[in-house]
Structures are given as structure tokens and as C-alpha cells.
Nucleic acid binder design. Structure first.
Lengths: 330, 330
DNA sequence: AATTAGCACTCAACTATTGACAATGCTAAA
DNA sequence: TTTAGCATTGTCAATAGTTGAGTGCTAATT
């Protein structure tokens, strides 16, 4: 544990660096601590020894290390309350009765992205642990129907599918009935396997255009369940304007990762509370921090996250996420 | 019109530059033209005079100007046929019966993005000139329904909406009936205006929870019709790996534009045929080219586009777009 | 009239070299 | 324990010199 002055000093250095992005020298902070630059240097050397600060080169000022940020977040920083104006803006969205919850969350996170100038992400939970509750089909026109899948946890996916002229609505209805009788309760991920091994062998008895109808459903399920697009970014490139992202390679590499569905779904938070992943821990880039939290509302889960530079206004962002999490969970 | 050798030369220079990204010097191409570097220099000076070539500095090799690319595309280049393998890959997608057309297009453009290493974009036409054909509502659970809008041109939009406990399905049904009686044929963009001025004043007679139901539909229409998200990118950052995108600012600025819905919807092509927008004409960046074409299939329109560096393999890309356009329009 | 060889010239790109500066670490005194 | 002082270190920006690829132009050649 650090002494009082050391705590104070680390806090000042981290916050100064967050503000200016420049290494912090001993002189610039002696006023705040009522001591000479030499004293500051001695303390700085100690903080560097124990791994909380780093130098960019032998004669440079100090920069917080990942450990330093961690200590700052865990011990020195207090989440910042939102301003009245911010609360107001968010309330108009959150209290809109006719917005579906997930839309309200997405909209609020859009606002937060604007307020902070970082990137926000809303990530619906993967539906792979959901079970099939019901399938419905709504005929739309002569050659298309909408298939709707409903899961036990309240997920609804729907997809318009084209139908081939020699398929009758009646036959589709029969297929739906079969599925609803035999596959309800199946894990979403396994529906297609069962479709293949349990339904396919027997549909010949009930349905003429077996092959076509089978394929139609198989494809529709495939698309709906493999659809990992269950996320929504806002301000995707906001934070890249920070000076640490000054090389084209770095920008490309980060943008690439944020385009990659694998990477995005790995952002899903499983722990509780608000979690901070600093630098390499973010799995995006050593200069990136992700702050995220899981929310649970009547069985429906999701992750909300803010992505920004490691040099992020932790207090502000954590404050906002706490607020949003609180609001949506009640 | 240029002479034979000048044509040949411009072609060589453009193609060489496309391959290497380095300004082309006189020496490097005299072999191809069977003449000395001095002769090449004379001709080059002429091509520069008439605006087809440029120098990056007084003693550098030549680089095609925008006009030069244009001349190349219009007069010197021949669209390249696809390889057998490429045709095969695309056919498996395009001939899949149970894929809705728009999905098939999206998938083929994904493939093309991979084959070319550029970015592909499928942009559904804006639905603002569509007219309302029918509204349907499917109850899903106790507190949600799916609203489906169908337009005269075959567009289908659907959205899950939350319902407030004191709204009965019966009342929603009445509202739908009202809409279907009074608003069919209205331009999508004007539906909400009519909803407000023609439906709202009279629903009191038929429906108890007027306010709530009205809001519910108003919001749903809003979301569905203002949804400009009717596009699909693939390989969004592919082409940014080219050496001309070497500054962080440039990369950011382009990525920003590709995130901007305004910019994207402005990519919609209105002309016929395959059109090439070189450099500044692309409206994205002076180093970017967009090649695009409109497709029309039973009244449904859309744009497919390839976005890449100005130094793009025009022959390959145009060949591919011609192929795809031909396939989907038949 | 078209082509070419030859030469002077230009500019970007690279490599040192330098001085100013902002920090540092360390020592010795307060 | 704190501080003043000083040698030391590495960055940054400016300057200068070198090289090489490429040009334009002129005069000779075909």
C-alpha cells in the first residue's frame, strides 16, 4: 500500500497524463504537492521501481504503466456523477414507454458515445444457450413468407424467405407444425442438427416438396442462429482521434478488429459489476481500454461497453455506465 | 485522339503504376515499346501536356492523372473475364434457390470483396418512393408483437415492438385495420404525417388506449422507414492496406466516411451501366475509386459497388461487376 | 521528320552532426 | 527527510552533405 503523498502523486500524474497525453515531469507537479522537484523525483523513482510508472526514455517525464492505471482505477479514482443535463438527456430516452428495451439501451449508448467522445458498444448476449420455444410463419405475398423464431428467453429473430412457386403455403404450415411438435426445447445451436436427423427422415410422409421445404427452413435457421450481428456500435472512430493513434497501421489494425465479429463477440462480459480492461487486457490494442458491464433484465442479458484510449477519463465513463446499468435494470 | 504508340504507352504506364504504386520512369518501359528512353521521355512530356500524366516532383517518374485513368478506363482497358474457378464459386451462391435475392447478392459481393481485396457494398434502394401496401401485426408473446410493413414494390420491413400491459391485442388489431383502410397507397415518407393528422383525430371513436397505441405505431413506423441501414459492406478495410493510405489521418477520414450513413446513401447509382468514379469523383477521398452499377429486378432496385484505391485493377473489377449484374438481372 | 545519345540539372531520401532543451539520477548540504 | 546543484541522457529540430533515379534539352544520327 502506498503512503498518502504517493497516492496523491500517482493520482495527479495519471490525471495530468490523461489530460495532456504528454509525459509528466517532476517540476510541473511540485506546486500541487508543496515540495520541490527533487522530492518529487525521488518519489517518482520509487513509484517506477514498484511498477506504477514508466519512462518513455531515460530522460523523459513519467507515464502511468498498466499497473499504474489499474491502481488508479481501483484505489484512487471515484466515479463521477453525471451532470443534470446529462441525466435529462438520458431520461427522455429511457422513459419512453413505447421503445423496446433493447432500442432504448442502444439509443442511450449512442448518447454516451457522443457525450464522452469514445466508442460505445451494445452487445446482445449470444443466443446459443437459448432454446427453441416456437416457430411461426407469416405469408406475405405469393412468393415470400416471414419466418419467426421465438426462444425461451424471449429472443425473437425473423427473416423473410423466398419461396419457390411449387411450394404451397399449406405444406409450409405442416412443416412448421412438425417443428413445433418435435423441436421445441432444443438448444438453438442444435436445431439444425435435429432438423437434419430427426425431421428430414420423416417429412416424406407428410410433405410432397420435401427437399425444397427442408432446404428453405434449414437455410433460414442457419442465417438466424449464426447471425452474430447482434451488436451495435456508435461513434466507431471517435477515440481514434487521440494522439496515441498516430500511425496508419495502428488505426487500421484497430478498425480491423472492430470489424471482426469474432473479436466483437469476445467482448461479451461474463463477470458482474463494472469491469475495466486496460491496454493489452482489452485484447484490441495496447493503447486501448474497454470498460464494460453485463446487464440482465428479465432473463435477457447483454453487455454494454465503452471503448477508448488507455488514457481514458475513467471516472466519467465508469460513472456513466453505473448510471445506465442502474436505470436499465430497474 | 492519341496515336497508337501513345495509347500503348499510356496503357503500360497506368498498368505499371497500378501494379507497383511507384512513379514510372522512362527507362523502365523502353523495352516494352522498342525505343530509347529519350523517345519515351518526349512522348511522356506530350502526355503530360495534354493532362494524362503527372509528376510528383520535377525529376520524378510519371503517374497517371485522374484524366489519365479516365482515358484508360474508357479507351484502353478491356473488362477481364472471370476465371472458371471464380465463376464456379459465384454460381453456387447465385443458383441457391432458397436464398432470397437480396441475400444472394450480398453473399456474392462478399465473395467478390475477398477475390479482389477491395471493399464491396450492396445498397438497397431507398424506400422513400415506395407506397404502403399493407400492415400486419403478429402477436408474439404477452408483451410483444411484430409489426410488418409491406410496400407496393415488395419491400418488407419488420420490427418487434414492446406493448404496454393495458393494451389489448384486440385494440391493436383495430388500429391495424384502420391503417389498412385509410393509409394504403401513401408514400412511406408520408405515412407518419397522415398517421398524425388523419388517424390520430379519429381513433378515439374506436380505441380506448388511443395515446399508447398511437405512439407505438408512430415509433415503429419511424424506425422502419427512417432506417437507412439498408446496406451491407464487406471487407470494409481491405483496400486501406495499399501504400497510398499511409497516414493515420487519411485512414481515419476514409473510415469515418464509410461509417457515415449520409455518405453511404449518396453512393446510390442512378445512371445505367457500370460507372467508374475516379479519385475526387468518388466523394470519399482523392485516392479512392468507386465502381458501381444499379441493378433492377422485378421493380426492386439497388446499387452494387466496389470501393478501392484509385490505383485499382479496373479491368478485373469491371469484369466482375458486369458478370454479377448480368446474373442477378436474369 | 523521327529517334537517340549525352549531359547538366533537380529533387527526394538518406545519413550525419549539431545545439537547445527537458528531464533525470545522484551527491552532499540543510 | 528534504532540497539544491550539477553532470548526464535522450529527444527534437535544424542543417548540411551525398547519392541516385529521373528529367529536359540539344545536337547528332537515321
Amino acid at each position: 500500500m502506498l503512503g498518502k503523498r504517493q497516492n496523491e502523486m500517482l493520482k495527479i500524474i495519471v490525471e495530468e497524463y490523461i489530460k495532456t497525453a504528454k509525459p509528466v515531469g517532476s517540476k510541473s507537479i511540485c506546486d500541487n504537492l508543496n515540495c520541490s522537484s527533487a522530492t518529487v523525483r525521488n518519489e517518482m523513482a520509487y513509484l517506477e521501481d514498484i511498477g506504477y510508472l514508466e519512462k518513455t526514455h531515460t530522460s523523459s517525464g513519467r507515464v502511468p504503466s498498466e499497473l499504474g492505471y489499474r491502481y488508479y482505477v481501483d484505489n484512487l479514482m471515484k466515479p463521477k456523477e453525471l451532470t443534470g443535463e446529462e441525466v435529462l438527456t438520458l431520461q427522455t430516452i429511457l422513459s419512453n414507454q413505447s421503445l423496446e428495451l433493447s432500442d432504448a439501451i442502444t439509443k442511450s449508448m449512442e448518447i454516451i458515445s457522443e457525450l464522452t467522445n469514445y466508442t460505445s458498444l451494445v452487445l446482445g448476449s449470444s443466443i446459443s444457450d437459448n432454446r427453441l420455444k416456437k416457430v411461426e410463419v407469416v405469408p406475405i405475398s405469393d412468393n415470400s413468407v416471414i419466418a419467426i423464431i421465438i426462444t425461451d428467453k424471449g429472443h425473437i429473430e425473423n427473416k423473410t424467405i423466398a419461396i419457390n412457386e411449387n411450394i404451397s403455403v399449406e405444406e409450409i404450415r405442416k412443416m412448421v407444425e412438425l417443428i413445433n411438435n418435435l423441436l421445441v426445447g432444443t438448444l438453438i445451436d442444435e436445431v439444425n442438427k435435429k432438423l437434419e436427423f430427426e425431421i428430414k427422415p420423416i417429412i416424406g410422409k407428410y410433405i410432397k416438396q420435401q427437399e425444397a421445404i427442408y432446404n428453405m427452413f434449414y437455410n433460414a435457421f442457419n442465417e438466424m442462429t449464426s447471425k452474430k450481428d447482434n451488436y451495435h456500435f456508435s461513434g466507431k472512430t471517435n477515440f481514434l482521434k487521440a494522439p496515441e493513434f498516430d500511425s496508419a497501421d495502428k488505426v487500421r489494425s484497430i478498425v480491423d478488429k472492430l470489424e471482426d465479429k469474432e473479436v466483437i463477440s469476445s467482448i461479451e462480459e461474463t463477470g458482474s459489476g463494472i469491469n475495466v480492461y486496460i491496454g493489452d487486457e482489452s485484447k484490441i490494442d495496447s493503447d486501448v481500454t474497454i470498460i464494460k458491464t453485463k446487464y440482465v433484465v428479465d432473463g435477457e442479458e447483454g453487455t454494454i461497453a465503452i471503448i477508448g484510449p488507455k488514457r481514458m477519463k475513467y471516472d466519467k465513463v465508469i460513472g456513466m455506465l453505473e448510471y445506465i446499468k442502474g436505470e436499465i435494470e430497474k
